[in-house]
Nucleic acid binder design. Structure first.
Lengths: 204, 204
DNA sequence: TATGTGCTTATACTTATGCATGATTGATCG
DNA sequence: CGATCAATCATGCATAAGTATAAGCACATA
């Protein structure tokens, strides 16, 4: 059995001295890291299934840090990104942050500033992963509903009575009750309140 | 009757030529603006009750733009802020954006970039004001509930049965039904689904 | 053809919810 | 003191919701 680390930080920088300095710093506070020399290097390697953060140099040969950020966003990969740079400018930092980066540090920076930013990023990703997991569970349950059950689901959480739903769907009220029971069981809800929240979370 | 403009932009800059250039630009696309020479000047003037945006110079005599941003955040004033600067640096821009600024432009900048940012900020503030208004209405309704009704409200939206609520609160089921009816009427909800959403919006 | 499966519907019953009426109590106020 | 108001609670009734059983139907499959 492979035991996953509690968290991991991916470091992508073409400068070996920067990579190793960062890696040493993180190791000194008990944070595991994996090093990459380029964006493609990172993209072609597997990511571990645990809370993580990406420390990214803005300027690199090949795909730049900002381009990698766009790539990951397009892939809907939610790993938080912390940029570091020696030769950045304001438009770069603005673009990075508007695209969701958690921070944008200029060298030289204080170790503590980096570690603080990193910790909050890892905490965020931990929570984000839990939200994603919960959402996946709900999604699976929803996909187990057939068409009729989904229609009843939609109308029930809009506050309609069984009688009204039956009228709208052109089926008997008994059928609505049966479908409604199936929805409750399949969505693993024991109350209408729970069902409403499940629905709104799925279709937010 | 004072008719409010559709939207307004507040410009705070100590340089009169910048203020007027911006004002002219905005006027040329039909956006009204009001000019201030300092943060305190802006703070001591009344804001109009309409969708708006604040264009702020970072560096100014007296309170700086970043300080004014913190002041407004502490006052929980949600007006979007767009920074412009001639002599900024990356840490400034990062701080501004992490504190919620919508953009951080360096002079010279393209008119179109500013206008695009401004339009999306105004759109956001329009929606934010509507959310705030809706929340105020719900808040008022909630405050019209007495203590017992709030307890029933809390337990109903947790999915408990009247019988269970009565047991927990040590009152009769009849009383729960009465309170529940009051909650529905005072919160202006015609279904449990509506009530659940009102509750979760209030206590998100 | 025979069989099984999934969906709909009906009947019958239990429980839950909503609401009106009225009695009781306790606090407040002129 | 008497009047009043809000809150609680009971009775009684109407409607809504949840569930079990069984029947009928379409459809796929052996």
């Amino acid at each position: 059995m492979s035991n996953l680390p509690q968290s991991i930080v991916y470091i992508v920088d073409d400068d070996v001295s920067v990579r190793e300095a960062l890696s040493d710093l993180l190791e000194s506070v008990g944070i595991k890291s994996v090093l990459y020399t380029s964006a493609d290097d990172f993209l072609s390697s597997p990511r571990l299934d645990c809370p993580s953060c990406l420390i990214l140099d803005v300027r690199m040969p090949g795909q730049s840090g900002l381009e990698l950020q766009n790539t990951l966003n397009a892939m809907k990969i939610s790993i938080p990104i912390l940029f570091i740079t020696a030769h950045g400018d304001i438009p770069m930092s603005v673009r990075a942050l508007k695209n969701g980066a958690v921070d944008f540090l200029t060298k030289p920076f204080s170790d503590q500033v980096l570690l603080d930013s990193l910790h909050s990023a890892l905490e965020w990703h931990k929570a984000e992963r839990e939200r994603y997991q919960e959402r996946c569970v709900l999604q699976e349950r929803y996909e187990s509903l057939n068409v009729g059950e989904r229609e009843v689901f939609r109308l029930v959480v809009r506050g309609l009575l069984n009688k009204q739903i039956a009228g709208l769907l052109g089926v008997s009220e008994i059928t609505v009750k049966v479908r409604r029971g199936h929805v409750m069981r399949k969505m693993a809800c024991n109350s209408l309140a729970c069902l409403v929240r499940a629905h709104d979370y799925l279709f937010a």
